[in-house]
Nucleic acid binder design. Structure first.
Lengths: 232, 232
DNA sequence: ACAAAAGTGTTGTGCGTACACCCATGC
DNA sequence: GCATGGGTGTACGCACAACACTTTTGT
Protein backbone atom coordinates (compact mmCIF):
# COMPACT_ATOMS: atom_id res chain seq x y z
CA UNK A 1 0.00 0.00 0.00
CA UNK A 2 1.30 3.35 -1.06
CA UNK A 3 1.83 5.82 1.73
CA UNK A 4 2.77 9.12 0.14
CA UNK A 5 0.08 10.76 -1.93
CA UNK A 6 0.57 13.99 -3.78
CA UNK A 7 -3.14 14.37 -4.28
CA UNK A 8 -4.02 14.16 -0.62
CA UNK A 9 -5.10 17.78 -0.37
CA UNK A 10 -7.41 17.65 -3.35
CA UNK A 11 -11.13 17.22 -3.08
CA UNK A 12 -12.71 13.78 -3.36
CA UNK A 13 -16.22 13.05 -4.57
CA UNK A 14 -18.82 10.35 -4.39
CA UNK A 15 -18.92 8.59 -7.73
CA UNK A 16 -21.81 6.42 -8.78
CA UNK A 17 -22.86 4.53 -11.85
CA UNK A 18 -26.45 4.54 -13.00
CA UNK A 19 -27.63 2.03 -15.51
CA UNK A 20 -30.47 2.56 -17.93
CA UNK A 21 -31.59 -1.02 -18.52
CA UNK A 22 -33.72 -1.48 -21.61
CA UNK A 23 -35.81 -4.48 -22.50
CA UNK A 24 -38.42 -5.18 -25.13
CA UNK A 25 -41.66 -7.06 -24.67
CA UNK A 26 -42.41 -7.55 -28.36
CA UNK A 27 -44.30 -4.31 -28.73
CA UNK A 28 -42.97 -1.76 -26.39
CA UNK A 29 -39.57 -0.70 -25.17
CA UNK A 30 -39.35 -1.29 -21.42
CA UNK A 31 -37.17 0.09 -18.67
CA UNK A 32 -36.08 -1.64 -15.48
CA UNK A 33 -36.35 0.61 -12.46
CA UNK A 34 -36.05 -0.15 -8.75
CA UNK A 35 -37.49 1.05 -5.51
CA UNK A 36 -34.62 2.86 -3.93
CA UNK A 37 -33.33 1.11 -0.84
CA UNK A 38 -31.33 3.90 0.78
CA UNK A 39 -31.99 7.38 2.00
CA UNK A 40 -32.61 9.94 0.72
CA UNK A 41 -35.71 9.24 -1.35
CA UNK A 42 -35.92 5.71 -0.02
CA UNK A 43 -38.87 3.92 -1.58
CA UNK A 44 -39.06 6.14 -4.63
CA UNK A 45 -38.47 4.88 -8.15
CA UNK A 46 -34.91 5.12 -9.33
CA UNK A 47 -32.56 3.77 -11.95
CA UNK A 48 -30.49 0.86 -10.84
CA UNK A 49 -27.19 2.25 -9.69
CA UNK A 50 -24.52 2.10 -7.07
CA UNK A 51 -21.40 3.74 -5.80
CA UNK A 52 -18.14 2.90 -7.48
CA UNK A 53 -16.01 0.77 -5.18
CA UNK A 54 -12.42 1.38 -4.27
CA UNK A 55 -10.93 -1.28 -6.50
CA UNK A 56 -13.57 -1.41 -9.15
CA UNK A 57 -13.48 0.16 -12.58
CA UNK A 58 -16.50 2.03 -13.90
CA UNK A 59 -17.37 -0.78 -16.28
CA UNK A 60 -17.15 -3.27 -13.45
CA UNK A 61 -19.44 -1.20 -11.27
CA UNK A 62 -21.95 -0.89 -14.07
CA UNK A 63 -21.86 -4.63 -14.69
CA UNK A 64 -22.24 -5.29 -10.98
CA UNK A 65 -25.46 -3.34 -10.66
CA UNK A 66 -26.92 -5.11 -13.67
CA UNK A 67 -26.11 -8.47 -12.16
CA UNK A 68 -27.61 -7.59 -8.81
CA UNK A 69 -31.09 -7.04 -10.20
CA UNK A 70 -31.13 -9.31 -13.22
CA UNK A 71 -28.61 -12.05 -12.54
CA UNK A 72 -27.16 -11.44 -16.00
CA UNK A 73 -23.52 -11.17 -16.95
CA UNK A 74 -21.87 -10.28 -20.26
CA UNK A 75 -24.69 -8.15 -21.53
CA UNK A 76 -24.46 -5.35 -24.06
CA UNK A 77 -23.60 -2.25 -22.09
CA UNK A 78 -22.20 1.14 -22.99
CA UNK A 79 -21.15 4.22 -21.12
CA UNK A 80 -22.76 7.29 -22.63
CA UNK A 81 -22.48 10.32 -20.37
CA UNK A 82 -21.33 11.53 -16.97
CA UNK A 83 -23.60 13.77 -14.95
CA UNK A 84 -21.80 16.15 -12.66
CA UNK A 85 -24.00 19.08 -11.72
CA UNK A 86 -23.20 20.06 -8.17
CA UNK A 87 -26.73 19.73 -6.85
CA UNK A 88 -28.00 16.80 -8.86
CA UNK A 89 -28.08 14.54 -5.81
CA UNK A 90 -30.01 16.10 -2.93
CA UNK A 91 -28.01 14.35 -0.25
CA UNK A 92 -24.41 15.03 -1.15
CA UNK A 93 -22.48 15.88 -4.24
CA UNK A 94 -22.34 12.77 -6.38
CA UNK A 95 -20.97 12.42 -9.87
CA UNK A 96 -22.76 9.75 -11.84
CA UNK A 97 -21.40 7.87 -14.82
CA UNK A 98 -24.37 6.67 -16.84
CA UNK A 99 -24.55 3.48 -18.87
CA UNK A 100 -27.28 1.96 -20.92
CA UNK A 101 -27.77 -1.76 -21.17
CA UNK A 102 -29.79 -3.93 -23.53
CA UNK A 103 -31.07 -7.23 -22.22
CA UNK A 104 -33.55 -9.89 -23.17
CA UNK A 105 -36.42 -9.62 -20.77
CA UNK A 106 -36.97 -13.35 -20.70
CA UNK A 107 -33.40 -14.02 -19.59
CA UNK A 108 -33.80 -11.83 -16.60
CA UNK A 109 -34.20 -13.44 -13.21
CA UNK A 110 -37.56 -12.18 -12.02
CA UNK A 111 -37.29 -13.58 -8.51
CA UNK A 112 -34.00 -11.81 -8.01
CA UNK A 113 -35.53 -8.68 -9.45
CA UNK A 114 -38.46 -8.68 -7.08
CA UNK A 115 -36.14 -9.17 -4.17
CA UNK A 116 -34.54 -5.86 -5.07
CA UNK A 117 -37.78 -4.04 -5.77
CA UNK A 118 -37.15 -4.04 -9.50
CA UNK A 119 -39.95 -3.53 -11.97
CA UNK A 120 -40.34 -3.08 -15.72
CA UNK A 121 -42.17 -0.01 -16.98
CA UNK A 122 -43.06 0.76 -20.57
CA UNK A 123 -40.91 3.66 -21.66
CA UNK A 124 -43.82 5.85 -22.60
CA UNK A 125 -45.33 5.43 -19.19
CA UNK A 126 -42.50 5.90 -16.75
CA UNK A 127 -43.08 7.04 -13.20
CA UNK A 128 -41.23 10.00 -11.80
CA UNK A 129 -37.67 8.96 -11.02
CA UNK A 130 -35.38 10.55 -8.47
CA UNK A 131 -32.86 13.27 -9.17
CA UNK A 132 -32.03 13.67 -12.84
CA UNK A 133 -32.82 10.07 -13.70
CA UNK A 134 -35.69 10.88 -16.06
CA UNK A 135 -33.32 13.08 -18.03
CA UNK A 136 -30.79 10.26 -18.14
CA UNK A 137 -33.39 7.99 -19.67
CA UNK A 138 -34.21 10.55 -22.33
CA UNK A 139 -30.54 11.00 -23.15
CA UNK A 140 -29.89 7.27 -23.27
CA UNK A 141 -32.79 6.76 -25.64
CA UNK A 142 -31.51 9.44 -27.94
CA UNK A 143 -28.04 7.92 -28.00
CA UNK A 144 -29.61 4.57 -28.76
CA UNK A 145 -31.71 6.04 -31.56
CA UNK A 146 -28.65 7.64 -33.16
CA UNK A 147 -26.69 4.40 -32.91
CA UNK A 148 -29.55 2.52 -34.49
CA UNK A 149 -29.17 4.49 -37.67
CA UNK A 150 -25.69 3.21 -38.41
CA UNK A 151 -25.31 0.00 -36.54
CA UNK A 152 -27.38 -3.10 -36.09
CA UNK A 153 -27.94 -2.53 -32.40
CA UNK A 154 -30.98 -4.07 -30.87
CA UNK A 155 -30.55 -7.76 -31.41
CA UNK A 156 -29.56 -7.90 -27.77
CA UNK A 157 -33.11 -6.99 -26.88
CA UNK A 158 -34.81 -9.76 -28.82
CA UNK A 159 -35.01 -13.49 -28.19
CA UNK A 160 -32.56 -15.82 -29.96
CA UNK A 161 -35.19 -16.49 -32.57
CA UNK A 162 -37.12 -13.51 -33.79
CA UNK A 163 -39.06 -12.43 -36.84
CA UNK A 164 -38.34 -9.41 -38.97
CA UNK A 165 -41.63 -7.76 -37.99
CA UNK A 166 -40.59 -8.11 -34.36
CA UNK A 167 -37.27 -6.45 -35.11
CA UNK A 168 -39.10 -3.73 -36.97
CA UNK A 169 -41.40 -3.13 -34.05
CA UNK A 170 -38.34 -2.73 -31.85
CA UNK A 171 -36.79 -0.18 -34.17
CA UNK A 172 -40.05 1.70 -34.31
CA UNK A 173 -40.14 1.74 -30.53
CA UNK A 174 -36.58 3.07 -30.35
CA UNK A 175 -36.90 5.75 -32.99
CA UNK A 176 -40.54 6.56 -32.33
CA UNK A 177 -41.25 6.50 -36.06
CA UNK A 178 -43.07 3.99 -38.26
CA UNK A 179 -40.96 2.08 -40.76
CA UNK A 180 -41.97 0.67 -44.09
CA UNK A 181 -42.36 -3.10 -43.67
CA UNK A 182 -41.18 -4.00 -47.14
CA UNK A 183 -38.13 -1.79 -47.18
CA UNK A 184 -37.14 -2.83 -43.70
CA UNK A 185 -37.25 -6.45 -44.70
CA UNK A 186 -35.13 -5.91 -47.79
CA UNK A 187 -32.59 -3.82 -45.96
CA UNK A 188 -32.08 -6.54 -43.39
CA UNK A 189 -31.56 -9.11 -46.07
CA UNK A 190 -29.01 -6.96 -47.83
CA UNK A 191 -26.98 -6.76 -44.65
CA UNK A 192 -26.78 -10.55 -44.62
CA UNK A 193 -26.59 -10.63 -40.89
CA UNK A 194 -29.55 -12.91 -40.39
CA UNK A 195 -29.92 -16.63 -40.83
CA UNK A 196 -33.40 -17.80 -41.70
CA UNK A 197 -34.78 -20.75 -39.80
CA UNK A 198 -37.33 -23.27 -41.11
CA UNK A 199 -39.98 -22.12 -38.75
CA UNK A 200 -42.65 -19.48 -38.80
CA UNK A 201 -44.43 -17.37 -36.26
CA UNK A 202 -48.07 -17.42 -37.19
CA UNK A 203 -49.38 -15.56 -34.19
CA UNK A 204 -49.54 -12.25 -36.04
CA UNK A 205 -50.68 -13.27 -39.47
CA UNK A 206 -52.08 -16.17 -41.45
CA UNK A 207 -49.08 -16.29 -43.73
CA UNK A 208 -46.64 -16.34 -40.89
CA UNK A 209 -43.25 -14.67 -40.56
CA UNK A 210 -40.02 -16.65 -40.69
CA UNK A 211 -37.88 -16.80 -37.62
CA UNK A 212 -34.29 -15.63 -37.94
CA UNK A 213 -31.13 -15.85 -35.92
CA UNK A 214 -28.55 -13.11 -35.74
CA UNK A 215 -25.35 -14.23 -37.45
CA UNK A 216 -22.77 -13.07 -34.96
CA UNK A 217 -19.84 -14.51 -36.86
CA UNK A 218 -20.68 -12.60 -39.98
CA UNK A 219 -21.25 -9.49 -37.89
CA UNK A 220 -17.76 -9.70 -36.43
CA UNK A 221 -16.26 -10.28 -39.86
CA UNK A 222 -17.93 -7.18 -41.19
CA UNK A 223 -16.87 -5.13 -38.20
CA UNK A 224 -13.27 -6.19 -38.74
CA UNK A 225 -13.47 -4.93 -42.27
CA UNK A 226 -14.83 -1.70 -40.88
CA UNK A 227 -17.83 -1.88 -43.13
CA UNK A 228 -20.46 -1.27 -40.54
CA UNK A 229 -19.16 1.70 -38.72
CA UNK A 230 -18.27 3.41 -41.92
CA UNK A 231 -20.88 5.74 -43.30
CA UNK A 232 -18.77 5.97 -46.46
CA UNK B 1 -24.36 23.24 5.67
CA UNK B 2 -25.87 19.82 5.85
CA UNK B 3 -24.69 17.72 8.74
CA UNK B 4 -26.24 14.32 8.32
CA UNK B 5 -25.06 12.38 5.32
CA UNK B 6 -26.37 8.98 4.43
CA UNK B 7 -23.49 8.43 2.05
CA UNK B 8 -20.83 9.03 4.62
CA UNK B 9 -19.64 5.44 4.68
CA UNK B 10 -19.29 5.13 0.95
CA UNK B 11 -16.00 5.47 -0.87
CA UNK B 12 -14.95 8.78 -2.38
CA UNK B 13 -12.65 9.26 -5.35
CA UNK B 14 -10.48 11.86 -6.92
CA UNK B 15 -12.25 13.19 -9.99
CA UNK B 16 -10.43 15.11 -12.68
CA UNK B 17 -11.27 16.57 -16.05
CA UNK B 18 -8.83 16.31 -18.92
CA UNK B 19 -9.25 18.45 -21.96
CA UNK B 20 -8.14 17.54 -25.45
CA UNK B 21 -7.64 20.98 -26.97
CA UNK B 22 -7.49 20.98 -30.75
CA UNK B 23 -6.30 23.78 -32.95
CA UNK B 24 -5.48 24.07 -36.65
CA UNK B 25 -2.55 25.85 -38.21
CA UNK B 26 -3.88 25.88 -41.74
CA UNK B 27 -2.38 22.56 -42.70
CA UNK B 28 -2.21 20.33 -39.70
CA UNK B 29 -4.40 19.56 -36.74
CA UNK B 30 -2.63 20.60 -33.56
CA UNK B 31 -2.97 19.64 -29.93
CA UNK B 32 -2.24 21.79 -26.90
CA UNK B 33 -0.30 19.91 -24.24
CA UNK B 34 1.38 21.12 -21.08
CA UNK B 35 4.38 20.27 -18.98
CA UNK B 36 2.86 18.74 -15.91
CA UNK B 37 3.37 20.90 -12.86
CA UNK B 38 2.65 18.40 -10.09
CA UNK B 39 3.95 15.04 -9.02
CA UNK B 40 3.87 12.36 -10.12
CA UNK B 41 5.38 12.69 -13.58
CA UNK B 42 6.16 16.34 -13.02
CA UNK B 43 7.75 17.85 -16.12
CA UNK B 44 6.33 15.26 -18.49
CA UNK B 45 3.90 16.10 -21.27
CA UNK B 46 0.26 15.86 -20.33
CA UNK B 47 -3.14 16.97 -21.41
CA UNK B 48 -4.41 20.08 -19.72
CA UNK B 49 -6.53 18.95 -16.83
CA UNK B 50 -7.39 19.51 -13.22
CA UNK B 51 -9.29 18.16 -10.30
CA UNK B 52 -12.97 18.89 -10.05
CA UNK B 53 -13.61 21.34 -7.25
CA UNK B 54 -16.13 20.99 -4.49
CA UNK B 55 -18.68 23.39 -5.87
CA UNK B 56 -17.87 23.13 -9.50
CA UNK B 57 -19.72 21.16 -12.15
CA UNK B 58 -17.82 19.04 -14.65
CA UNK B 59 -18.45 21.52 -17.43
CA UNK B 60 -17.21 24.34 -15.25
CA UNK B 61 -14.04 22.45 -14.40
CA UNK B 62 -13.41 21.70 -18.07
CA UNK B 63 -13.94 25.36 -18.99
CA UNK B 64 -11.66 26.45 -16.18
CA UNK B 65 -8.71 24.43 -17.39
CA UNK B 66 -9.14 25.78 -20.90
CA UNK B 67 -9.13 29.32 -19.61
CA UNK B 68 -6.04 28.81 -17.51
CA UNK B 69 -3.81 27.97 -20.46
CA UNK B 70 -5.49 29.85 -23.28
CA UNK B 71 -7.34 32.75 -21.69
CA UNK B 72 -10.39 31.77 -23.74
CA UNK B 73 -13.97 31.51 -22.56
CA UNK B 74 -17.09 30.30 -24.35
CA UNK B 75 -15.30 27.92 -26.66
CA UNK B 76 -16.76 24.85 -28.30
CA UNK B 77 -16.33 22.04 -25.80
CA UNK B 78 -17.88 18.65 -25.40
CA UNK B 79 -17.66 15.86 -22.89
CA UNK B 80 -17.03 12.55 -24.65
CA UNK B 81 -15.94 9.83 -22.25
CA UNK B 82 -15.04 9.08 -18.65
CA UNK B 83 -11.98 7.02 -17.90
CA UNK B 84 -12.19 5.01 -14.73
CA UNK B 85 -9.73 2.13 -14.77
CA UNK B 86 -8.46 1.62 -11.25
CA UNK B 87 -4.78 1.98 -12.09
CA UNK B 88 -4.91 4.58 -14.82
CA UNK B 89 -3.27 7.18 -12.58
CA UNK B 90 -0.06 5.92 -11.02
CA UNK B 91 -0.36 8.05 -7.92
CA UNK B 92 -3.86 7.41 -6.64
CA UNK B 93 -7.11 6.27 -8.10
CA UNK B 94 -8.49 9.09 -10.18
CA UNK B 95 -11.51 9.07 -12.41
CA UNK B 96 -11.17 11.41 -15.35
CA UNK B 97 -13.97 12.97 -17.33
CA UNK B 98 -12.60 13.80 -20.74
CA UNK B 99 -13.62 16.73 -22.95
CA UNK B 100 -12.47 17.89 -26.31
CA UNK B 101 -12.30 21.54 -27.23
CA UNK B 102 -11.92 23.32 -30.53
CA UNK B 103 -10.23 26.71 -30.53
CA UNK B 104 -8.73 29.14 -32.97
CA UNK B 105 -5.02 29.06 -32.46
CA UNK B 106 -4.63 32.74 -33.13
CA UNK B 107 -7.10 33.69 -30.40
CA UNK B 108 -5.13 31.84 -27.84
CA UNK B 109 -3.01 33.84 -25.40
CA UNK B 110 0.51 32.59 -26.07
CA UNK B 111 2.11 34.41 -23.17
CA UNK B 112 -0.35 32.84 -20.78
CA UNK B 113 0.27 29.51 -22.41
CA UNK B 114 4.02 29.70 -22.01
CA UNK B 115 3.61 30.61 -18.40
CA UNK B 116 1.88 27.27 -17.90
CA UNK B 117 4.29 25.26 -20.00
CA UNK B 118 1.78 24.83 -22.78
CA UNK B 119 2.86 23.93 -26.28
CA UNK B 120 1.20 23.02 -29.55
CA UNK B 121 2.16 19.75 -31.20
CA UNK B 122 1.02 18.53 -34.59
CA UNK B 123 -1.27 15.60 -34.01
CA UNK B 124 0.74 13.19 -36.10
CA UNK B 125 3.83 13.96 -34.10
CA UNK B 126 2.76 13.92 -30.49
CA UNK B 127 5.18 13.20 -27.70
CA UNK B 128 4.45 10.49 -25.17
CA UNK B 129 1.83 11.76 -22.75
CA UNK B 130 1.33 10.56 -19.20
CA UNK B 131 -1.09 7.87 -18.09
CA UNK B 132 -3.76 7.06 -20.69
CA UNK B 133 -3.66 10.51 -22.26
CA UNK B 134 -2.46 9.30 -25.66
CA UNK B 135 -5.46 6.98 -25.77
CA UNK B 136 -7.74 9.85 -24.84
CA UNK B 137 -6.44 11.84 -27.80
CA UNK B 138 -7.09 8.94 -30.15
CA UNK B 139 -10.61 8.53 -28.81
CA UNK B 140 -11.34 12.25 -29.03
CA UNK B 141 -10.17 12.37 -32.62
CA UNK B 142 -12.40 9.47 -33.54
CA UNK B 143 -15.41 11.11 -31.93
CA UNK B 144 -14.60 14.30 -33.80
CA UNK B 145 -14.26 12.41 -37.09
CA UNK B 146 -17.66 10.78 -36.59
CA UNK B 147 -19.27 14.10 -35.75
CA UNK B 148 -17.75 15.66 -38.81
CA UNK B 149 -19.73 13.35 -41.04
CA UNK B 150 -23.11 14.69 -39.98
CA UNK B 151 -22.51 18.11 -38.60
CA UNK B 152 -20.57 21.15 -39.75
CA UNK B 153 -18.12 20.99 -36.87
CA UNK B 154 -14.77 22.56 -37.39
CA UNK B 155 -15.55 26.19 -38.05
CA UNK B 156 -14.46 26.78 -34.48
CA UNK B 157 -10.95 25.84 -35.51
CA UNK B 158 -10.61 28.30 -38.36
CA UNK B 159 -10.21 32.08 -38.39
CA UNK B 160 -13.28 34.29 -38.89
CA UNK B 161 -12.42 34.54 -42.54
CA UNK B 162 -11.33 31.36 -44.23
CA UNK B 163 -11.21 29.86 -47.67
CA UNK B 164 -12.86 26.64 -48.76
CA UNK B 165 -9.52 24.97 -49.46
CA UNK B 166 -8.53 25.78 -45.87
CA UNK B 167 -11.70 24.18 -44.58
CA UNK B 168 -11.07 21.18 -46.77
CA UNK B 169 -7.54 20.83 -45.43
CA UNK B 170 -9.03 20.82 -41.94
CA UNK B 171 -11.49 18.08 -42.78
CA UNK B 172 -8.75 16.07 -44.39
CA UNK B 173 -6.70 16.45 -41.23
CA UNK B 174 -9.59 15.31 -39.05
CA UNK B 175 -10.64 12.33 -41.10
CA UNK B 176 -7.17 11.47 -42.37
CA UNK B 177 -8.49 11.07 -45.89
CA UNK B 178 -8.15 13.22 -48.99
CA UNK B 179 -11.29 14.92 -50.24
CA UNK B 180 -12.19 15.90 -53.76
CA UNK B 181 -11.72 19.68 -54.05
CA UNK B 182 -14.57 20.17 -56.50
CA UNK B 183 -17.12 18.10 -54.68
CA UNK B 184 -16.20 19.60 -51.36
CA UNK B 185 -16.69 23.08 -52.68
CA UNK B 186 -20.10 22.29 -54.15
CA UNK B 187 -21.27 20.53 -51.04
CA UNK B 188 -20.45 23.52 -48.89
CA UNK B 189 -22.33 25.84 -51.21
CA UNK B 190 -25.37 23.61 -51.13
CA UNK B 191 -25.46 23.84 -47.36
CA UNK B 192 -25.71 27.61 -47.65
CA UNK B 193 -23.93 28.11 -44.39
CA UNK B 194 -21.20 30.32 -45.79
CA UNK B 195 -21.20 33.97 -46.79
CA UNK B 196 -18.71 34.86 -49.49
CA UNK B 197 -16.61 37.97 -48.95
CA UNK B 198 -15.18 40.20 -51.69
CA UNK B 199 -11.68 39.21 -50.92
CA UNK B 200 -9.35 36.48 -52.04
CA UNK B 201 -6.47 34.60 -50.57
CA UNK B 202 -3.84 34.35 -53.27
CA UNK B 203 -1.11 32.79 -51.20
CA UNK B 204 -1.88 29.28 -52.43
CA UNK B 205 -2.72 29.85 -56.06
CA UNK B 206 -2.62 32.42 -58.78
CA UNK B 207 -6.34 32.42 -59.18
CA UNK B 208 -6.95 32.90 -55.49
CA UNK B 209 -9.66 31.48 -53.26
CA UNK B 210 -12.50 33.57 -51.95
CA UNK B 211 -12.75 34.16 -48.25
CA UNK B 212 -15.96 33.12 -46.51
CA UNK B 213 -17.58 33.71 -43.18
CA UNK B 214 -19.64 31.11 -41.35
CA UNK B 215 -23.30 32.16 -41.29
CA UNK B 216 -24.16 31.42 -37.69
CA UNK B 217 -27.69 32.75 -37.96
CA UNK B 218 -28.55 30.45 -40.80
CA UNK B 219 -26.90 27.59 -38.95
CA UNK B 220 -29.11 28.12 -35.92
CA UNK B 221 -32.19 28.33 -38.12
CA UNK B 222 -31.38 25.02 -39.72
CA UNK B 223 -30.68 23.42 -36.39
CA UNK B 224 -34.05 24.54 -35.10
CA UNK B 225 -35.68 22.85 -38.05
CA UNK B 226 -33.71 19.77 -37.14
CA UNK B 227 -32.33 19.54 -40.62
CA UNK B 228 -28.73 19.13 -39.71
CA UNK B 229 -28.84 16.53 -37.06
CA UNK B 230 -31.21 14.39 -38.98
CA UNK B 231 -29.61 11.72 -41.11
CA UNK B 232 -33.07 11.01 -42.51
C1' DA C 1 2.43 30.85 -73.00
C1' DC C 2 2.34 28.09 -69.23
C1' DA C 3 1.65 26.24 -64.73
C1' DA C 4 -1.12 25.57 -60.84
C1' DA C 5 -4.80 25.79 -57.96
C1' DA C 6 -9.91 27.17 -57.69
C1' DG C 7 -14.03 25.94 -58.85
C1' DT C 8 -17.92 24.28 -62.29
C1' DG C 9 -20.22 20.83 -65.22
C1' DT C 10 -21.38 16.18 -66.42
C1' DT C 11 -22.36 11.64 -65.71
C1' DG C 12 -22.89 7.24 -63.37
C1' DT C 13 -24.17 4.65 -59.41
C1' DG C 14 -26.11 3.14 -55.16
C1' DC C 15 -29.31 3.73 -51.70
C1' DG C 16 -33.48 5.17 -49.44
C1' DT C 17 -38.36 6.01 -50.17
C1' DA C 18 -42.84 5.28 -51.71
C1' DC C 19 -46.00 2.29 -52.99
C1' DA C 20 -48.15 -1.22 -56.03
C1' DC C 21 -48.58 -5.82 -55.98
C1' DC C 22 -48.15 -10.82 -55.02
C1' DC C 23 -48.08 -14.67 -51.37
C1' DA C 24 -49.65 -17.83 -47.84
C1' DT C 25 -53.06 -19.25 -45.00
C1' DG C 26 -56.79 -19.33 -41.18
C1' DC C 27 -61.27 -18.38 -41.00
C1' DG D 1 -62.92 -16.60 -51.18
C1' DC D 2 -61.53 -13.05 -48.59
C1' DA D 3 -59.18 -10.61 -45.11
C1' DT D 4 -54.66 -10.09 -43.02
C1' DG D 5 -50.25 -9.31 -42.46
C1' DG D 6 -45.59 -10.93 -44.81
C1' DG D 7 -42.80 -10.11 -48.26
C1' DT D 8 -41.20 -8.85 -53.36
C1' DG D 9 -40.88 -5.78 -57.40
C1' DT D 10 -40.54 -1.42 -59.50
C1' DA D 11 -39.82 3.32 -60.23
C1' DC D 12 -38.11 7.62 -58.82
C1' DG D 13 -35.03 10.95 -56.77
C1' DC D 14 -31.22 12.47 -54.32
C1' DA D 15 -26.59 12.52 -52.77
C1' DC D 16 -22.28 11.40 -53.63
C1' DA D 17 -18.08 9.94 -56.25
C1' DA D 18 -15.26 10.34 -60.24
C1' DC D 19 -13.29 13.17 -63.25
C1' DA D 20 -13.15 16.24 -67.35
C1' DC D 21 -12.91 20.83 -68.04
C1' DT D 22 -12.89 26.00 -67.49
C1' DT D 23 -11.21 30.06 -64.96
C1' DT D 24 -7.81 33.16 -63.10
C1' DT D 25 -3.52 35.15 -62.73
C1' DG D 26 1.59 35.26 -61.37
C1' DT D 27 5.69 34.26 -63.51
Amino acid sequence: MKMSNHYKNTEKHHVAVDNIIFGFDGNRLMLLVVKRQIEPCKGEWSLMGGFVGKNESLDEAAARVVKITTGLEDVFMEQFFTYGEVDRDTEARTISVAYYTLIRVEHHDHALGQQHGARWFPLENLPHLIFDHNQMVKDALQVLAVKTRNQPVGFELLPEKFTIPQLRALYEAITGKPLDPGNFSKKLHNMKLLTRLDEKDKSQSKKGAFYYRFDKIRYEELQKEGLLFELK
